[in-house]
Simulated assay, not measured.
Amino acid sequence: MNKWYRLGEKSSEKYSDKELYKFLNENNYVNSLNCEGKDFKERDYKKMCSMIGAEEEIENKHYTHGERKYYFYWGFDSRKEK
């Protein structure tokens, strides 16, 4: 998988669903009433890596709209199921 998926996995080891929601809400990543959510950016990756103490990965991939967030949630949820 890609770096966003792995970041989601590592985040789930440190944060609960409620803590993740709080972070996303405080940083305006939660969809509003008119369903306008925004995707993560590379600067968010660096910030989130430093928050959990994860080593940043370098990846040469172009993501389409919403793809970073999708992979992150997928990785976050995959650890919860185990």
Rank of each mutant, 00 (worst) to 15 (best):
W4T: 13
M1D: 08
N60Y: 04
F23V: 14
K69I: 04
Y29N: 07
N31F: 12
I58G: 01
K41S: 03
K3N: 06
K14V: 12
I58F: 14
H62G: 00
K69F: 11
Y45H: 09
G75I: 03
Y71H: 08
E13P: 05
N31M: 12
E67Q: 12
L20S: 12
W74H: 09
D77M: 04
M51L: 15
M1F: 05
F72C: 00
Y21N: 15
C49M: 03
E36M: 07
Y15E: 12
K47C: 10
K22V: 11
L7A: 12
R79M: 13
Y73D: 10
E26N: 11
K22G: 05
E55R: 09
S78T: 08
E42F: 09
Y29E: 03
H62A: 12
S11M: 06
H62C: 01
S32N: 14
Y5I: 12
K10I: 09
E67K: 10
Y5K: 14
E9D: 09
D17I: 02
Y5D: 14
D39T: 03
K22I: 11
A54D: 01
K47S: 15
W74P: 03
R68Q: 13
Y45D: 02
H62E: 07
K3F: 05
K22L: 13
L20G: 10
G53S: 06
S32T: 07
R43Q: 11
G75C: 02
F23Y: 15
C35S: 04
E57A: 15
G53V: 01
N2V: 02
Y71F: 11
G66P: 01
K41L: 10
E9Y: 10
Y29C: 01
D17M: 10
T64Q: 03
N34H: 07
N34F: 00
Y63G: 05
E42I: 10
V30H: 07
C35A: 00
Y45S: 05
D39S: 12
K82W: 08
A54F: 03
S16E: 06
F72Q: 04
K46L: 11
V30P: 06
N2W: 06
F23A: 05
D17V: 04
S50M: 05
N28P: 05
Y73T: 05
M1T: 00
N27I: 00
I52R: 12
E56F: 05
S32Q: 02
N27F: 06
T64Y: 10
S32K: 04
E67A: 12
R79F: 00
S32V: 01
F40C: 06
E13N: 15
W4E: 14
E26S: 07
